[in-house]
């Protein structure tokens, strides 16, 4: 963080991340009470502000805010109307939980879903080869369909 705006109205700390605010001039809202502050930062230092600008429209929201004097209450990135989303985590790709897939981007089968059939060997020993036709016949069928449709590529 290069600096903070500590809103005295509601005792909330709004964090100014260096990636956005290192050299920045404009208005930013408090994540809790919505009070608008004007700041001008040069090379990470607060050159002017924060000055309250009640009633004005903010240019940007903080990325993260919390209330350190009131325990762990916080506003995580992307809380609607309060903090802006962390733009480098594309949520349509990253889900945060195991993402089962049966085919790679070139539509060939990969063993990326659970559960899988048990080893069947002693002491958890597995055979060398995944016999997809025998062990996962439904995926094999789907694969054959993909081949017929010409969806299976080399790259």
């Amino acid at each position: 963080m290069c600096d903070i705006i500590w809103c005295k109205k509601c005792n909330t700390v709004n964090y100014l991340d260096p990636y956005c605010f290192w050299n920045w001039e404009g208005k930013i809202n408090c994540a809790e009470c919505g009070e608008v502050y004007y700041i001008h930062m040069i090379q990470g230092h607060m050159y002017r502000g924060p000055e309250p600008r009640p009633g004005e429209k903010p240019d940007i929201m903080p990325l993260y805010a919390d209330k350190p004097l009131e325990g762990y209450k916080n506003y995580l990135p992307g809380t609607e109307g309060r903090t802006r989303p962390y733009n480098c985590t594309p949520r349509h790709i990253y889900l945060g939980h195991a993402d089962y897939r049966k085919f790679s981007i070139r539509n060939r089968p990969m063993r990326a879903w659970a559960p899988q059939p048990a080893a069947g060997g002693v002491a958890g020993a597995y055979g060398f080869y995944w016999d997809i036709k025998k062990l996962s016949p439904e995926v094999w069928e789907e694969y054959q369909e993909k081949i017929k449709k010409g969806e299976v590529r080399d790259w």
Binding site: G96, P115, A118
Partner: peptide, 19 residues
């Protein structure tokens, strides 16, 4: 795994849902 998402299975017979 990145963001807890990308796994290959199986891991071990005793942990069928873990990759």
């Amino acid at each position: 795994s990145p963001f807890n998402e990308c796994y290959y299975y199986p891991l071990h017979d005793t942990r069928p849902k873990t990759g």
